[in-house]
Amino acid sequence: MSAILRDAGPADAAAIAAICNHAVRHTTAIWNDTLVDEANRRDWLMARQAAGFPVLVADLGGEVAGYASYGPWRAFDGYRLTVEHSVYVGEAFRGRGHARALMQALIARARAAGLHVMVAGIEAGNAASVALHQSLGFTGDQVMREVGQKFGRWLDLRFMELRLDERPSP
């Protein structure tokens, strides 16, 4: 069964929280230690959308298999055409192409919004995420060593980027 990609709504907050919390508990994909609840994700979702940023879900017959969003990369005016994204897929749905589909839709939204660069910040040891991003045209091998920590160890952060258009100036 193919997922339907759609904009998330408040009814998706609990599923988004569950996917997020699994990543917090079990992976180094999210560098937080604090779990979130449905109200937190609903507030996050509404704030993202109010700021004009998409939150997309992969819907499999009413079940949220994954979600993706982008937001500001840095808070200074000069970075307004650059965004950083996130994409997460529930453990039971991985390996089925949902992350790729979500990313393709997110990239299309960023291009339609007139954005110039999308940045990925990936835990350097996450080979699957690095490979996915490379297959989507992201480049770059800038690694910042030991800038994070989780599960009692230091984490390296790899930055990758995708140029969304070829305009010579803003």
Rank of each mutant, 00 (worst) to 15 (best):
M1Q: 08
M1Y: 05
A8E: 01
A11R: 15
A13N: 00
A14D: 03
A18C: 04
I19T: 02
C20A: 08
H22K: 07
R25G: 05
H26K: 08
H26V: 03
T27R: 06
T28P: 01
A29C: 05
W31Y: 06
W31D: 01
D33P: 03
D33E: 15
T34M: 13
D37N: 14
D37E: 12
A39F: 03
N40A: 14
N40C: 11
D43H: 08
D43E: 15
W44P: 01
M46Q: 13
M46L: 15
R48M: 13
G52Y: 06
F53A: 09
P54L: 08
V55E: 05
L56V: 04
V57M: 07
L60R: 14
G61H: 06
G62M: 07
E63L: 10
V64W: 00
A65I: 02
A68V: 06
G71I: 05
G71P: 08
R74C: 14
D77Q: 14
L81K: 09
L81Y: 11
T82K: 03
H85C: 05
V89L: 06
G90F: 00
E91V: 02
A92T: 09
A92P: 06
G95Q: 09
G95F: 06
R96A: 13
G97P: 04
G97M: 04
A99G: 08
R100K: 15
A101M: 14
L102G: 07
Q104K: 10
Q104D: 09
R109E: 13
A113P: 02
L115H: 04
L115F: 02
H116F: 06
V117Q: 12
V117N: 10
M118V: 08
V119S: 13
A120M: 08
I122M: 04
E123R: 06
A124I: 04
N126H: 10
N126V: 06
V130K: 05
V130T: 13
A131N: 05
L132F: 02
Q134F: 02
L136A: 13
D141F: 02
D141H: 10
V143I: 15
V143P: 07
R145I: 09
E146N: 15
V147P: 09
F151L: 10
F151T: 09
L155P: 01
E161K: 11
R163P: 09
D165C: 11
P168R: 13
P168V: 12
P168Y: 04
S169A: 15
P170C: 13
